[in-house]
Amino acid sequence: MIEIKDLHKSYKMGSNSLHVLKGINFSVEEGELVAIMGSSGSGKSTLLNILGMLDVLDEGSYTLDGVPIKDLNETKAAQYRNKFLGFVFQSFNLINYKSAMENVALPLYYQKVGRKERQEKALKYLEQVGLREWADHLPSELSGGQKQRVAIARAMAAEPKVLLADEPTGALDSTTSYEVMDLIQKINDAGNTILIVTHEPDIADMCKRIVHLKDGVIVEDKKITQVRASQYV
């Protein structure tokens, strides 16, 4: 599903540049649930942003579902993001003047799905994250956990090939974190490929594979037996 070869990325700041990713080789099969770990500043978010086509790589190659991701103009990148990828952010990033349902429907709107069908699908996904009754609420009327569940519903609405989550539980307490992880595991059970950046070992243990980044290279990549989140909920 994801294939990365010898990926390099540096940030230029004035005259000096900061080499953040120093040759990453990495691939993800369909249906995997991968945790990316590492100390702060090790380049986790940078990697995820490149995978999400929000940022561009300097060197190396990136293939997503057999499509080489290279030299995309903004229009094309937007189209790929919409079709291939779903994002979940640490700070939720819901649009605050739109209701939960409208937020979930957004990716479908960009796919030019009709209004009625959009609403039906949005409600279906809200139902799946258990927030159907909150469809008409604004983000400001939701708790952190609820916001993140809306964000997950939004990320899933366009039925992406890969779900990318950058510290999805970073702003939540442990109980809500487990609720969110439970949801993510269920989505993964349905066959979706998911990558999660996290600091927390217990969250990483709920994935099926852990990748460790240190100083811009992968230092450890191991498959683990998944801890089910449902037992804590």
């Binding site: 903004e74 937007a78 790929y80 919409n82 994002f87 649009i95 957004l106 960009y110 366009a158």
Partner: peptide
């Protein structure tokens, strides 16, 4: 700006 960033992450066409 941030909202526009979110919308682009969700795949809205820049022309739109």
């Amino acid at each position: 700006t941030k909202e526009i960033g979110i919308r682009r992450a969700l795949g809205e066409n820049p022309w739109s």
